[in-house]
Design a protein around this nucleic acid. Structure first.
Lengths: 349, 349
DNA sequence: GTGAAAGCGCTAACAA
DNA sequence: TTGTTAGCGCTTTCAC
């Protein structure tokens, strides 16, 4: 067996198959799409030739002719963040099962990239677009972006994990209120009253909702809200680290900390450890996303899980249904669950 | 401002532009591709109309007609692994700069998926394929897969991060020998002699090469190789954890451990910590990949970095050059560097 | 049941 | 400089 680079291996087409089978291209197309009757005898013959050459129809041509590319474009904030990686992989699997392919683009924190990606996906004639994070996380939707998306939704359905006021995007969101409830009940059940919330920005919808719910739960339990216990910041290691340092340095030590995600939790763990406190004996740490980071740290993190498989399936389902003009709910919620690990325990004192 | 879903927003084409401008479609095409002369006056008029409708040419049609899709297909083992995520993002950026789009598929450990993805990418008429990990990591290439790929390379260039014997794939690899040298010099320089190598399988090329080099360096320094110090395993947290447990439980405590990647390093750190040893005072831990995991752990990990940006650029460059029939070296090496952090220190005793 | 022909939206060779 | 024409590879009427 010898595999040589057969230099100009002209791609085989439906016509080549047709000629060899002694039929017309239409007939070959019929057995390919399998949506018209072809005499069994011919059908078998054609199929054999197709198999023999391992022929696969050109998706571009197919897409051009029936104006369906069977591709779903996905714009993610950053797949290097395991949260997005999990969601993306879940979407990819769900899409594949439904016979669709996914095209991934990352905006990497450059919001202007999102517009460009939108444009590119449009050019590629994707059948639907799913946007994971980025501008759709904004509490107040960017006007410019809304305009761009609104323009697109006329032709291509767009599904987002957040929202985009003024557009007809479909929304599949994580139930942020419930996510906060899970953490708060867990902590309050362990006797915590001095609970800090570290990381996240209030101009991000999901964070804002968590914050609101945090206040509400405190209030429901007659625990007074302490301003200093909410440390706004970002969503990465560094901001978690700095946020926690700030708290401890100011001598306002909480007995429990809710991190906005696993990354910031890692920074928080570092800060606490550096200050000589133990987790969870002195301070409990809990977080959101339940990415593998939660299992890598010492101690392992109690974290809120989203059932990524279901999340991805809902996103893709919405995208495909919308693309195929079927009924799609404007908004769907994904219910989070709590995974308890080593980082949370009874309140100190 | 009111954005309504203008239900059947027929996609605008080059003909619509042409009609409105009172010219032929070819002329519009000319200003679009900008590779033929059009009288400035007309050109401006056409451009205005294009801008007015924010018209973007259909990439499918374009790809069909000039048989170049400007898409690079990427098959990754699993983007949830930050190593692949880093490489992918680097490829995506490099591709975008060169005017290409990338299509990502993950095989998620299911080798049969790789063949299917290959097929799918072929159907999408991608201009080139980049495969990151998976079967191209095998020390002995899978015969079946080799056949499939060899068939494809006739039409579509394939670039891999490993190798695929018997095919004409282009190879862009990390210099595994050098990567091991960096770690070994570092450790030996710190006085370590009892150095264990935990994780990885010898049927994976890069691991095999590291193993060989490990033996060589030991030999060069007249350090006797101890069989038990090489603990074969996988590439994740669990295998790192179990591998290290095995070492310690057998009372063959090394003074330094080389983890096959950051994931297994995390497991190793856990095992060491659980056994009551300190890092690096009792045991140093170093690893490969330098993903963000290395900075999240306590202690932070000394790890071998690959300069992902360059890695991605080389992969994409090779892919594009090959697609455009330019000269491409069959094999290229990426030179790793060492990032020293908290997890490594002078040998105990 | 099957083939001929038109068309999907674009580019490029050829005339004019 | 510009328009006409012929594809790119496939699907889908419309006749037969």
């Amino acid at each position: 067996m010898d595999f040589q680079k057969s230099s100009d291996n002209k791609r085989i087409t439906i016509y080549d198959i047709a000629k060899e089978a002694g039929v017309s291209a239409s007939t070959v197309s019929r057995v390919l799409t399998n949506n018209a009757n072809v005499r069994k005898e011919k059908k078998d013959k054609i199929q054999n030739i197709i198999d023999k050459y391992d022929f696969k129809p050109n998706a571009l041509a197919k897409g051009l002719s029936d104006t369906k590319s069977k591709i779903i474009g996905i714009i993610a904030a950053d797949v290097r963040n395991p949260y997005y990686a999990e969601v993306f992989v879940a979407c990819e699997s769900a899409a594949r099962e439904a016979g669709y392919t996914v095209l991934l683009c990352n905006s990497l924190g450059m919001v202007e990239q999102e517009s460009l990606h939108l444009q590119m996906l449009q050019q590629q004639s994707v059948d639907a677009i799913i946007q994971l994070g980025g501008r759709v996380d904004d509490l107040v939707s960017d006007k410019d972006y809304v305009g761009k998306v609104a323009r697109i939704t006329g032709t291509i359905p767009v599904v987002v994990t957040g929202k985009l006021d003024g557009t007809s995007c479909y929304r599949v969101q994580i139930d942020a209120k419930k996510a906060m409830d899970l953490l708060m009940s867990h902590l309050i059940g362990l006797g915590h009253k001095r609970i800090a919330l570290v990381g996240g920005r209030k101009n991000v919808t999901s964070t804002y909702e968590k914050y609101k719910q945090y206040l509400k739960v405190l209030h429901d339990h007659q625990i007074e809200f302490q301003e200093e216990f909410f440390v706004e910041g970002g969503y990465n290691y560094q901001t978690g680290y700095e946020g926690m340092n700030k708290l401890i340095d100011r001598h306002i030590k909480p007995t429990a900390v809710i991190a906005i995600n696993d990354f910031s939790a890692a920074g928080i763990v570092r800060s606490i450890t550096e200050h000589g406190y133990r987790i969870p004996q002195d301070i409990s740490v809990v977080s959101y996303d339940n990415t593998y980071i939660a299992t890598l740290l010492i101690p392992t993190l109690t974290s809120v899980d989203y059932d990524y498989k279901t999340f991805g399936r809902k996103l893709v389902q919405a995208a495909i249904n919308a693309a195929e003009d079927e009924e799609v709910p404007i908004q769907q919620l994904v219910t989070p669950t709590l995974v308890i690990r080593e980082s949370s325990g009874p309140a100190a004192d």
